[in-house]
């Protein structure tokens, strides 16, 4: 089988982990609607025995799209590699990876236990790192670029949920490093920071207000999918290593954390500056020396 079809992503093959429900489901459907052949990876099976991935595949196919279901476990490097290889086997190549698979636990530093920490780290951080590593090898070998969208959370650097927040922050670091490494190959890596009502996060918008972000007007998971899809288009070839917040109709692009260029930075020295000292110091803050 090979990727065919029409639309802005015609001929492209996408793998969406956690694609059976919530944000991932919306992303899979929008990418398919743009012409991509989509591998929907999800392990969830409901009480009636219906696999979430198969349901989404059926939805895509009913709308004229091309999709295949996968139930592999991305929570190990071996499993992640198998899921990526499964996508290549299904449609012949891999152009887009969106890593929505996740889980959640609210434990703080006082009550977190190691099994919970291991589980969250496996699904989120190992899942992301393993999928990115395998996908990067495939995309590099293909030689014509690629698109990767990781899924983190503002809670990564704000949240007290020790295991969940730690893994989500680590994904942000992973995104930056992978974006730098893969940019010469035409592979973009961007990080989505979503806020939506999903099975994992049923709390309403009023409980998500931090970091100066205003109340969201809409919280539908499907509203976020177009943002992800944009990052997967040819037009977004110059967008990489960015942190994009999306919630309903709200968008924000965060500057990379702990970077000083482009920001107001106040410097106090314990004695007056000399000209040479200013010349040595200030260009870095101004980004004037490359």
């Amino acid at each position: 089988m090979s990727a065919t079809g029409t639309g802005r992503l015609a001929g492209r093959v996408a793998l969406v982990t956690g694609g059976g429900r919530g944000l991932g489901r919306g992303v899979a459907r929008v990418l398919a609607g743009l012409g991509a052949s989509v591998v929907v990876s999800d392990r969830f099976v409901d009480e009636a025995g219906t696999a979430a991935a198969a349901t989404v595949v059926a939805e895509i196919e009913a709308e004229g799209g091309r999709a295949a279901a996968d139930s592999g476990d991305i929570a190990s490097f071996e499993g992640a590699r198998a899921v990526v290889q499964g996508a290549v086997d299904a449609f012949g190549r891999l152009d887009i990876l969106v890593t929505c698979a996740g889980t959640y636990a609210p434990s703080t530093i006082l009550d977190v236990e190691q099994p919970e920490w291991e589980g969250l780290t496996a699904v989120h951080l190992v899942g992301h790192t393993g999928c990115l590593a395998a996908a990067a090898e495939v995309m590099r070998a293909q030689g014509d670029g690629g698109r990767i969208v990781t899924v983190s959370s503002r809670g990564g650097l704000f949240g007290p949920q020790t295991a969940y927040s730690g893994a989500k922050a680590a994904i942000m670091g992973l995104t930056t490093a992978a974006a730098r490494e893969l940019e010469p190959d035409g592979i973009t890596v961007n990080c989505l920071l979503p806020s939506a009502l999903t099975q994992l996060f049923p709390m309403d918008a009023s409980r998500r207000r931090f970091g100066g972000m205003p109340l969201s007007l809409f919280m539908e998971a499907d509203d976020i999918a177009p943002v992800v899809a944009y990052l997967c288009l040819d037009e977004a070839s110059g967008v990489t290593g960015r942190f994009v917040y999306a919630s309903g109709a709200d968008l924000a692009v965060y500057e990379p954390p702990l970077r000083v260029e482009g920001h107001t930075t106040f410097v106090r020295r314990t004695r007056p500056w000399t000209v040479d000292e200013v010349a040595d110091y200030l260009p870095s803050l101004l980004r004037a020396d490359g």
Binding site: I109, T129, L132, G156, G159, T162, G166, T176
Partner: peptide
């Protein structure tokens, strides 16, 4: 170098430390 590094493990570990600090 946490958000200015090519090393994926280093970047992840350092970012996780920032999270641990903030959350705890």
């Amino acid at each position: 170098a946490v958000f200015d590094s090519d090393g994926v493990g280093q970047a992840s570990m350092n970012a996780a430390v920032l999270s641990l600090t903030s959350g705890a």
